[in-house]
Computed example of a mutant assay.
Amino acid sequence: MQTSLEWFGATTFRLKTHGLTIFLDTWLDRPANIPSYGCIDQVEECDYIFISHAHFDHLPGADRIAKKTGAIIYANCEAINVMRLAGVPEQQLFPVQGGERVPLYTRDQRALPEAERPAPACSVHIWPSLHCFGPPGEHRHFPDVIDTATEYHGQAGPYACTLDITQGQRLGLFRAANAPAEHLANLPAELRGFVDYIRDQERNRCSPVDGGQLMFNFLLGQRTLLWMAHLGGYEGVLRDMRPQPDTVIMACAGRANFNGRPWNGSAAQFATQVLKWLGEPPTVIWCLHDESPIPPRRIEVQGASDMVQREMKTRVMTLNHVTPVSLWE
């Protein structure tokens, strides 16, 4: 059974497998200051949507795809509440928090009484994960480009945690979006496009609260695909995950979040360690390293690629935007 994967930038992918069309995040319609590689209005088919968390570069568009196609959304409670307020029917909303095992049925199978359904061809295991940190310092001083080979040690207060990300979005991005028009006129042109995007919450539904990061391990016949939409996680979950994945999609941006604390070292070192815990899967695919509407605007992943391929058997697969690739041929 052929499995294809298509990347739309950041952490948004379209997975086609076993007669199913699955979106991993749905950030297709993007701010005017960065390229868009897809369009929500052009999505005609979707069976399932899996959302990593509720932020502006992951959740927007899920409500519009779900209402148009009837797709079922699996996401944390914060994202589900945003979708509910957007008018997605309740029967299409499934809140999860990690620990769930979900069978994935085709539409024909879902139409049958539960007792008459055949065994699903594929399924997904949902696990708790963690959102990464930004590089040290205030957001307004972040560089445009950060390198996965750069090491960070210390430089974080005793209470550094993902609440800092929440406060940054609440008091920075979302406050700017609600500022009076005369204040917005003083923003750089590239930021005005982003603020316009955040202000349009009718089309771009999201939250400043991530709601609890999730990762998803898809069991696709004899193969397994793990999708991690941020550089962070819990050692025990990653080390003891079964089945171990054949392919890992891993966000490789920011300072890694290890067990809820800033990782001492580089993003490359953390990614390498995670892949070792996961049993050195044959393939890793980086994401979240391309264009961002706010600093840091791009992540240089060569350091991570070099370290992974130097220290283990895992190979790095590079995807081009909107170019489907066949996995495991």
Rank of each mutant, 00 (worst) to 15 (best):
N259L: 04
P243S: 05
E329G: 07
L214E: 10
E44K: 14
P95A: 15
A86C: 10
D57N: 12
L275F: 06
F13E: 02
A177H: 04
Q169M: 06
T11F: 01
M241F: 01
G154W: 06
W127I: 02
P103R: 13
E116P: 05
R117Q: 04
C39E: 10
Q269H: 10
M312L: 09
R310S: 14
G98N: 01
P281S: 07
C122Y: 05
R170A: 09
H183Y: 11
G9K: 13
A62H: 12
I40N: 07
H139K: 07
L173I: 15
M1P: 11
P293N: 11
H139Y: 13
E78I: 13
R170W: 04
L59C: 03
L20H: 07
G99P: 10
W127A: 15
K67C: 04
L191G: 00
T323E: 15
W328Y: 13
N217G: 01
I285P: 10
G236K: 11
R107Y: 00
K16F: 00
G260A: 04
L184P: 05
G254N: 07
R175M: 11
P243Y: 01
W7M: 06
P324K: 13
L275K: 11
M250P: 03
A189Y: 11
F174D: 05
H230Q: 14
L214D: 00
L104K: 02
V88C: 09
L238A: 03
P282F: 06
S305G: 00
T17W: 00
G154S: 09
G154N: 08
L59M: 09
P324N: 10
Q169W: 00
M83E: 03
M241C: 08
L238V: 00
A66N: 04
Y105N: 07
Y105I: 06
L275H: 08
P31W: 03
E182S: 13
L226M: 03
G279K: 09
R14K: 14
G157D: 14
E280K: 06
V96G: 05
Q91T: 12
Y234G: 09
G212M: 02
Q273N: 02
T3G: 02
V124G: 01
C122G: 07
T17V: 07
C39I: 06
C122F: 09
L231A: 07
C287H: 12
R140L: 13
L59N: 02
E100S: 02
W286E: 08
W277Q: 02
V301D: 03
A179E: 14
L171E: 07
F194C: 00
P158G: 09
G134W: 04
P295Y: 03
P208M: 06
A75L: 08
A256F: 08
A304M: 11
T12R: 05
L214N: 08
A79Y: 03
E78M: 13
G236D: 15
S4I: 07
H141F: 09
R203M: 13
D246V: 04
C132S: 12
L220Q: 10
D196T: 09
E151K: 15
G193N: 02
